[in-house]
Write a protein that binds this DNA or RNA. Structure first.
Lengths: 193, 193
DNA sequence: TCGATATATGTCGGGCCGATATATGACGGT
DNA sequence: ACCGTCATATATCGGCCCGACATATATCGA
């Protein structure tokens, strides 16, 4: 599923500009589910307009730059539903924090401690954003509450695990006084299965 | 963190070929944490060799094509530790399943049911792979067990939520007899905050 | 013998990210 | 009054990475 399709999906909830779509990815409906940069969103909207899947309307604003508001056409809506019905790819995760934990035995302890604190802060922030999204009046739909509940269940489980086991991870890291010694030590060529 | 750095990290556990690194992404150490295609791995190993971070050794095999086995140099190891200590980016998730649930009210019920079944099957398969990784003799390190435990906690939470609430989601989808009627219906232009 | 599967490496087009440029106006500090 | 910072808003561009394809060897079952 490409960015064009995802943008079209967001527009089923109502018209929006490229900037507003970016904000929805960051703290709105798609928080923690999907993500796209301006460098993807603006070209995607241009191509959607060329294909007749959206129409563009320029809107003047007072005290702010003008914006281009895009609306989904019936053709675009039908195409989105067809694309989403065609099948979905498995979840794709990219966790640099998980990589850091796997190599914790190579990192100074204070670095690992900082990473754990940072990760816990991000989990908490994501939970707050989900709470806000649930209070949103547009979330009366049971299916949006399902998506929010699934995210919250995973975040709470991750938080509970991290807070109860972080000492084990930090103990595996390199203690401050051994830091230089370890970096100079020869590497045992351990084979992995 | 680019693919080069992640490949270098895997090589701290011992020498490996590009093909073996791909398998480690799929069902080994990095299962559910990171992912890379052959189109990224092979050029990454070539560039790592050019930079002197790995050395390459060609190995003949009986009953199989030859392979190129890469080993991390001390320079490459030091560079990897420095890169990983420089800071980490927040987790990035791309869940087409979550998108499908958000738009469940636009999809036929049988499509949603199939997607839920598929997602549950993927969660279970990921749990099995984590169990195998934990039994692996190389996972005596407490930090690798931490990463596995974190993944398992999130997967179990997601599974429990899906199995107890899937009926709510499926009820929000389009019932079979109303399918054509809904697609022809006019779209109310609902604004999102 | 034919196709399927597994092992193994590589290229290439195109999609997407991150950085950068540009512009307007609000707000607070000196 | 002036300046920097922040938020709003759009757009481009280099480069990284994915997915598809090409290529090759060998085993196994139909």
């Amino acid at each position: 599923m490409d960015i064009k399709t995802v943008c079209a999906g967001l527009l089923t909830f109502g018209e929006a500009s490229g900037y507003e779509i970016k904000k929805l990815f960051e703290d709105g409906t798609f928080n923690g589910v999907y993500d796209a940069s301006f460098g993807s969103i603006y070209p995607a909207l241009t191509r959607l307009a060329e294909e007749g899947h959206v129409v563009c309307r320029e809107q003047e604003q007072h005290g702010r730059p003008d914006k281009k508001v895009y609306s989904l056409t019936p053709k675009g809506r039908a195409h989105f539903v067809a694309e989403l019905s065609r099948g979905i790819q498995p979840d794709r995760v990219r966790s640099e924090f998980a990589i850091a934990t796997i190599f914790a035995h190579l990192l100074p302890r204070d670095v690992i401690v900082a990473y754990v604190d940072q990760q816990i802060a991000e989990y908490r922030a994501a939970l707050v954003r989900l709470d806000e999204a649930e209070c949103d009046p547009s979330s009366e739909m049971t299916n949006l509450q399902f998506a929010i509940g699934l995210g919250r269940a995973q975040l709470n489980a991750a938080l509970a695990f991290m807070e109860s086991r972080r000492a084990l991870l930090e103990a595996a890291a390199v203690p401050p006084q051994q830091e230089t010694a370890v970096e100079a030590r020869a590497v045992p060529g351990v084979k992995h299965a």
